[in-house]
Design a binder for these strands. Structure first.
Lengths: 109, 109
DNA sequence: TTGACTGGTAAGTCATAGCTTACGTATCAT
DNA sequence: ATGATACGTAAGCTATGACTTACCAGTCAA
């Protein structure tokens, strides 16, 4: 059993694994929002939403600034690019018809 | 506190949240592999890899077929498209940044 | 048939994710 | 100054994710 080298973990994939956090990002894509505004559509408590926001914050997917007694969260979508880059290695599987044909020929010798 | 409607959860995001499972997909992108071959690069036990494979299987990201005493796993990359579609809503954020950067560089030679 | 492989699954442990309520702090309005 | 608002965080609970070892069944080779 050999070890996989350079296994440094990105918190981004775990951050977007939860549907509530993806929804939060979706809301923030429309513009900066306060915690209250972000929590409104959810059935869960506001502290729960705060905890989700912290996870997004730690992953660098959002930033926060204070405005009076509110805290406004802002989307940092650039961090999602890492995921897109990883996904791009698989694009050929649904874009490239030749690849499909190649795989078909492989399974039918 | 209103409820978010239609909160149907996809197992795909959770499936790709674990680095070992992303690595397994990466390995399978090179071609079909037996469990033994897939487990080789990992420090964890083979049953652990089997359990990861089951999660990928349940998410529809891989399929399995039997060949003698081996089980060959095959990538089903099309299922990743769902993630790419979600990500595409954020592409403009870094495309905008790049466009701005490009214009800035043109103005300041 | 016997023994070596391949690989799934059960059982058990440990850590942590995800929620709740309770509380503290800063800000604003009156 | 007082009370209401916005929010973070601590504490505690439960469920589950991620591993391990032990065991089982199926396949192949001698």
């Amino acid at each position: 059993m050999n070890t996989v080298a350079g296994e440094r973990e990105t918190p981004i994939y775990a951050a977007i694994a939860h549907p509530a956090r993806r929804r939060l990002l979706d809301l923030l894509a429309e513009g900066d929002r306060s915690v209250k505004a972000l929590a409104a559509p959810f059935a869960m408590s506001r502290p729960a939403v705060s905890q989700h926001l912290k996870i997004l914050l730690d992953a660098g997917l959002v930033s926060e600034r204070r405005a009076g007694r509110e805290r406004l969260y802002r989307l940092r979508a650039e961090r999602l690019r890492e995921v897109q880059v990883w996904l791009s290695r698989y694009e050929r599987f649904w874009h490239d018809h030749l690849a499909k044909l190649g795989r078909y020929l492989e399974e039918e010798p």
